[in-house]
Design a protein around this nucleic acid. Structure first.
Length: 110
DNA sequence: ACGATGACTCTTC
DNA sequence: GGAAGAGCCATCG
């Protein structure tokens, strides 16, 4: 990949997601300046497993609030989100608007 | 180089 | 809110 910087940005933003909150691929991509890179964000999530420290990719869902990816993986993310206070039903985030975290509006650098 | 694919999003029905 | 079609860009055979 010739865009490690882009991947790094994705990981950074994803780590900024507070517990009990979720965000969408498009929101991250848009925050990075490329709204159409939503798919690349998703790809980055697949690669985040090798990232150190690992990123809370389970806090990232699609625009509908549905846990994307493999059903088995979604099942694990569902429990993690519920453990943080996020209401999840059938691999789908409830109260999506409430738990939605917008990086472009709520992110802050220490 | 080309066509197919995908952890996406948008518009329209 | 769910389904279908189109647009999007990088990766793969």
């Amino acid at each position: 990949m010739d865009d490690p910087d882009f991947f790094n940005h994705i990981y950074e933003v994803t780590r900024q997601i507070p517990a009990g909150r979720v965000t969408s691929y498009g929101a991250i991509a848009k925050f990075l300046g490329s709204p159409n890179y939503s798919r690349m964000v998703g790809r980055a999530m697949g690669e985040c497993g090798k990232a150190k420290p690992p990123v809370p990719y389970y806090r990232v869902v699609n625009s509908t609030g549905h846990l994307t990816g493999d059903p088995s993986g979604a099942h694990r993310r569902r429990e993690l989100l519920e453990g943080e206070g996020v209401d999840v039903k059938d691999d789908k985030v409830q109260n999506f608007k409430k738990v939605f975290w917008d990086p472009s509006k709520e992110i802050n650098y220490e």
